[in-house]
Design a binder for these strands. Sequence first.
DNA 1: GTTCAGCTACCTACTAGTAGGAAGACAAAA
DNA 2: TTTTGTCTTCCTACTAGTAGGTAGCTGAAC
Lengths: 190, 190
Amino acid sequence: MEQTTSEKILDVAQSLVVAGGYNGFSYADISDAVGIRKASIHHHFPTKAELVQVLVDRYTQRAESGLKSLREHVPGPVEQLQAYLDYWQKCILDASEPFCVCAMLAAEIQMLPEPVAAHVRRHFENLAAWLTSVLKAGVEKKLFRLARSPEEEAQILMASVHGAMLSARALGDPSLFAAIVGPQVARLKA
Amino acid sequence: MEQTTSEKILDVAQSLVVAGGYNGFSYADISDAVGIRKASIHHHFPTKAELVQVLVDRYTQRAESGLKSLREHVPGPVEQLQAYLDYWQKCILDASEPFCVCAMLAAEIQMLPEPVAAHVRRHFENLAAWLTSVLKAGVEKKLFRLARSPEEEAQILMASVHGAMLSARALGDPSLFAAIVGPQVARLKA
DNA sequence: GTTCAGCTACCTACTAGTAGGAAGACAAAA
DNA sequence: TTTTGTCTTCCTACTAGTAGGTAGCTGAAC
């Protein structure tokens, strides 16, 4: 158990956000799950807004470095894209992280504290940029043949991923994610 | 002023749900917007769960009859599909209803009262069924050429629509909806 | 004369957040 | 070596405000 209390709080808070969004959890919920008092959570994260901000920041940083390492360590663009989708497929199937934190928060973005909203927005921009660069690389190597610009196709792909998460959740069918996202990748291949 | 108080309450509640989800509004918010006391809202809708259940029921019924009348009054399947998407494009552009109530609630479905969750699920099923039937009709008339089964393509389309709403909201760019959804329809056309 | 729709006034439970103290860890000073 | 001070972490106890919900009353309408 090498995990600090702060990290435990963030982990619990993240899974609570994934389950019910910003207004779907309270310090009391975290308190119960972590096993410390509410006031102790305030010691680590003075306000809820700060807590979620740190949480989102950690999430986007992890995502960014994860995506970066995919680009570095996975052989080709097709495989890189597939690895990204496989990651989510696994998370959804084993219910370990059945929804993207930022997708969840994006739905409520209108009533999020501005700093949090800004971080959520940035995650969408980063993800779109990553997908764009993967698609571009694939086009250059004649592995992808796109009907639209890489930027547009990246937006389409990102929307499909988030929409697929939502459908899988709404209909209670985790396999729906792959059923939706799979064909979208297939049609890009040259 | 032909609108009943119940309808005013439902309208306000619906726009609040669209903005912030189930946990993103309170009876006090409705009270302020409608101009009656909290207790009076409880007269019309004893509990919050009932209020949202009625709200979702009204929404799904309206959607169902709206989609049905599209099928009856719009000439061809291609135009029917486009009319559905144009409806949302307009709602998002003029911010009158910038998100689907059921898509919003689907994100929080895990912590929704079960009756509400069931209604949300049913809306997803209905919408998928409608899209499937439109695609099937289009295939028969050789207006659509699908890479997958109509059922699968309908799921893909539905996910794209919801994902496009989310991206448009997250990135604060209403035009993104059409940019994502447009190409998805284009590729279905024969 | 009952039903409807609103009201005032209230309740309990919970919200985020604060004040201030106890216990331990650690390092510098005696 | 002991003492002192500081820092960290967590605690109890509390606050003001808000959540959903209730009791019971008015006045108008059918």
